[in-house]
Write a protein that binds this DNA or RNA. Structure first.
Lengths: 141, 141
DNA sequence: TATAGTTGTAATCATTTTGATTACAACTAT
DNA sequence: ATAGTTGTAATCAAAATGATTACAACTATA
């Protein structure tokens, strides 16, 4: 099982807004054609990013605009903004048998290890800012 | 989206086999009642673990038995044995628009960052052996 | 050797999640 | 007023998951 594409779609969306926003009006239609998904998907993404205080979106007249500085936006911020993973990354089987010594203690043994792995992933996401991505993108464009 | 419970089920299964295997015949029914899932789910898990060379399973007479030493089984080995994640952990939207400077370069900018995060997760899983879990379990039992 | 207890595996099913899509009210610049 | 948007609810199809049924193949042992 994989982490939903909402995450990479949101990163793509933000890069578009921050890189192309001065030149074009960033409507959901415009962004959707860059990402190649349905405009409604982008509107939902924009909603999440707006709720997280990363961008602002104008209803009616249209267009998304930067709010936070690119130095203050990490991949982790985007990851949490779009709710890729609610709580624990690892699914656990429900109701292990408490009559069994293994079933009774499986959570005690495993939970912290899995949490550590998830934290390692998230820390790595925290180490990358939108500035980092934009620097790299500007070289390629 | 989360990582399938096949993983934690497999860890649970192995702990049962290595801890209780001397005392009981570890049939799929027995393990299933500890994990609290359908026995067929356990048989599939056992198949994967057997294919990975971690355990042996006797068809007919029944029962799963250890093959590898607990020092040589990491959480990562189990994670790969049951194929929680095929290839990339992060889903990517298909066909970003190559006419757009962002769409054209989004993979170049993002792929390695996401790979780094996934590697951090997997390295953490590599650092935990079944021995570690069993030590902890023995204290609790 | 017949039997009882297993494993291995295919086939189905319901549930959940995802992303696509339609539809439309509400909003705003012009 | 209008045209172009956003916000959001409602549906839909597809994919993935785990549950379950079914049964052939296998093996210890009585």
């Amino acid at each position: 099982m994989k982490i939903t594409s909402r995450f990479t779609v949101a990163v793509h969306t933000l890069l578009a807004i921050y890189v192309l926003g001065k030149e074009y009006k960033m409507t959901s239609d415009f962004i959707a054609s860059s990402v190649n998904v349905n405009p409604v998907v982008i509107r939902r993404t924009l909603s999440s990013l707006k709720a997280a205080g990363i961008i602002d979106v104008k209803a009616g007249s249209g267009g998304a605009m930067p709010v936070k500085d690119t130095d203050d936006i990490t991949l982790y911020d985007i990851y949490t903004a779009v709710d890729c993973v609610e709580g624990n990354l690892f699914n656990f089987h429900e109701n292990p048998n408490p009559e069994c010594p293994v079933g009774k203690n499986i959570h005690a043994v495993l939970d912290s290890r899995l949490a550590d792995a998830q934290t390692a992933l998230e820390n790595e996401l925290k180490s990358v800012t939108l500035t980092d991505l934009m620097k790299q993108l500007n070289i390629l464009m």
